[in-house]
Amino acid sequence: MAHTEQFVTAGVTEPVGRMREFRSRWPSEDGVAVFNRVYLAVTEEVGRRIDAGEFPDRGAAVTLGVLFARRYLTAVERAESGARPPACWRPLFRYRRHPGVRTIQFALAGINAHIGHDLALAVVDSCEALGCEPADLEDEFDRVGEILTVMEERVREDLMPGPDLLETAGPLTHLLGSWSLDRARDGAWSAARLLWNVRRLPDLAGEFTEGLDRAVGLVGRCLLTPWA
């Protein structure tokens, strides 16, 4: 529980600081930098709302927020050290400089990896840290999800191709429209509950986690289909 007390005291300061550092050293057109800007804005907004008392359980909200962010930060560390990040993140790191991938594709591919895979594992991590059940974190999960939904809407509004790219926007719009944040969140919640219930069966839990990682990575690869 000592780690939990540290989370509550520091809030989301640690992950925000790390993401600001990434922003300062990556070129703005880099695909991982595109996602990092979106996620930094989300994390800052979560921090503001926690400080404003909008989450009923501050400790649970901070713990979930920090452990969730650390999944992304660890993926960056692994990629930059030459190690392999989780399969869900590999397409984004592989295609981060591809000139035929649009900005919105980078943003949604990162959101897909983080929500589809990392969020489920972060819920389990948080339950272990807090000594609670997933149901005890459902309010915090839903409130974070509401913020993510608003941010995704802004991403689509701000980053969708303009009229000058109308020729490619048809199939691109079809591709990006096939991915849903709401469905990804629902899937993450179901996966978290399943993982929690099989946590004492490590072989089964590991097999499920590996399959989830690969499946989310496949969706990410499709989202990053080059258009030029």
Results as ranks from 00 to 15, higher is better:
A10N: 02
A60N: 00
L148W: 02
G170I: 14
D186V: 06
V32M: 04
A184L: 15
G170V: 10
V150K: 05
H117M: 12
A122F: 15
F22I: 10
W196A: 02
L201K: 03
N36H: 00
G82H: 11
E207K: 01
R20S: 05
I115A: 11
V198S: 00
E45I: 03
T63F: 00
S81P: 03
Y39K: 05
E21L: 06
A184K: 05
L176P: 14
R96K: 11
M151V: 14
G100L: 02
R25A: 09
N112E: 07
G177S: 13
T74M: 07
F68V: 11
I104E: 09
E210H: 08
T13G: 03
G211L: 12
V198Y: 04
L137P: 09
V8G: 01
E167Y: 07
W89F: 13
T4M: 03
R90M: 14
L223T: 10
R185Y: 12
R214L: 13
D142Y: 13
F7Y: 09
S178Q: 05
A107C: 15
R221N: 05
L121M: 15
P163A: 04
V101S: 05
V198R: 01
L40H: 13
A83Q: 06
A215I: 10
T103N: 09
R96D: 04
G82T: 06
Q105Y: 09
L218D: 15
L166H: 15
R156D: 13
P56L: 00
L223M: 07
L194H: 08
A107W: 08
D30R: 04
L40R: 01
G217M: 03
W227V: 14
V216W: 11
D118L: 10
R90F: 13
E140I: 15
P226A: 00
A215M: 10
G131I: 10
G116K: 07
A135W: 14
R183A: 15
P163S: 14
R156T: 12
A188T: 04
T63V: 02
A113R: 05
A83M: 05
P27T: 04
V16R: 00
D213K: 00
L130E: 06
C132N: 00
L176G: 11
P56H: 07
A41R: 15
E80A: 09
R183H: 14
D57R: 11
G211F: 07
L73F: 15
F68L: 10
L176W: 07
R84C: 09
D182Q: 11
A107Y: 09
A69D: 08
A107Q: 08
Q105I: 01
R25T: 05
G187H: 10
L223H: 09
C222V: 15
